[in-house]
């Protein structure tokens, strides 16, 4: 192959073959080895100086001890069907329509693959393990009542808890709450003893490992979010990309997190689906940069390449 044919532009792309250029010695293996040593030393130094954050997980016992009224309110909310998971929809249940991306109901179409009936799975079933006769009687009363009655009891109690000072069950005004106060207080008692830990694992086997139900329950309460907000991890505090403590976390998530902070996403019912849709589009854009007219020409207009190849440009 001659020099000329090597340099002749082929097709629409006029970039010459890199092998046609003058060369200089370059030791790739040495470069890599030095890079590896540098990264290793830097890593060890950063780890030694800054360590890494590790805050203990919130346990259900800890929740019951720190925010007992929140446990009672959450259990009541599960029975009343007013919590986040009780109205969630796919993939946990059919209780909500799920988010949509324009005409695409991706959430609903994907189906209920991780079935969770919050009243049953998060509150009543774990309580069934209790040997306490009062609890058992309350559960029987609940089971025997028609659905409208259950909703009336639990909604009334939920409202009464909200009205009580500090949400303290002791301060609730008298009313027709059926077995709900007993169920909710038994639930708190179970949580306090540690009996709830593990009782929420759907496998029901010795080997746990799936925290879905426990996490749904925790997230239905206010305590988890309060703890997170106290550490500046709220959704509107750029929470997804931050870490506990003063650690960098996942700064590469900044663009994803950014959309949640601004309209229209900040106030949209379908913010999650919209932000995901937008990010998928932008990701596709990143992958296809070489083919997008305009975008692929930006480097030609911005003279950063003049700096990068300044030695070469000086001589040509």
């Amino acid at each position: 192959m001659t020099m000329a044919s090597t340099l002749r532009p082929t097709g629409r792309d006029r970039t010459p073959d890199s092998h046609a250029f003058p060369t200089r010695p370059y030791d790739l293996v040495k470069e890599f080895t030095l890079a590896l040593v540098a990264m290793l030393v830097l890593t060890i130094a950063l780890a030694a100086v800054f360590s890494s954050p590790d805050e203990k997980p919130i346990s259900l016992v800890g929740w019951a001890a720190a925010a007992p009224n929140d446990v009672v309110a959450t259990a009541t909310g599960e029975l009343a069907g007013t919590t986040t998971s009780a109205g969630y929809g796919a993939p946990y249940n059919d209780a909500g329509p799920g988010q949509t991306l324009g005409p695409l109901a991706l959430q609903r179409w994907a189906g209920v693959t991780i079935p969770v009936d919050p009243a049953q799975d998060l509150v009543l079933a774990p309580l069934r393990r209790s040997a306490d006769p009062t609890t058992a009687a309350a559960l029987d009363t609940w089971a025997a009542a028609p659905p409208e009655q259950r909703t009336a009891w639990s909604t009334a109690y939920s409202d009464a808890l909200t009205a009580a000072p500090d949400g303290d069950p002791a301060g609730v005004a008298p009313g027709d709450y059926g077995p709900v106060p007993v169920i909710a207080s038994s639930f708190l008692a179970l949580a306090r003893t540690g009996g709830l830990e593990g009782a929420l694992d759907p496998s029901g086997t010795f080997y746990g490992g799936d925290a879905t139900r426990g996490l749904l329950l925790l997230a239905d309460g206010a305590y988890l979010e309060d703890q997170a907000r106290a550490r500046s991890l709220g959704g509107d505090q750029w929470g997804m990309m931050n870490e506990t403590g003063n650690y960098p976390g996942q700064p590469w998530m900044w663009l994803y997190t950014f959309w949640y902070q601004v309209p229209p996403f900040a106030t949209s019912e379908n913010a999650d689906a919209q932000v995901w849709g937008l990010m998928m589009l932008l990701t596709l854009g990143l992958v296809l940069v070489p083919f997008i007219p305009g975008v692929r020409s930006i480097p030609r207009w911005v003279p950063v390449h003049r700096l990068i190849w300044r030695d070469w440009y000086r001589r040509h």
């Binding site: 796919a90 993939p91 799920g98 988010q99 959430q107 994907a110 693959t113 925290a211 996490l215």
Partner: peptide, 12 residues
Amino acid sequence: NSVGIGAFFNVL
């Protein structure tokens, strides 16, 4: 979950 990925990729 909002885009259906959560149905088989369960972050919990």
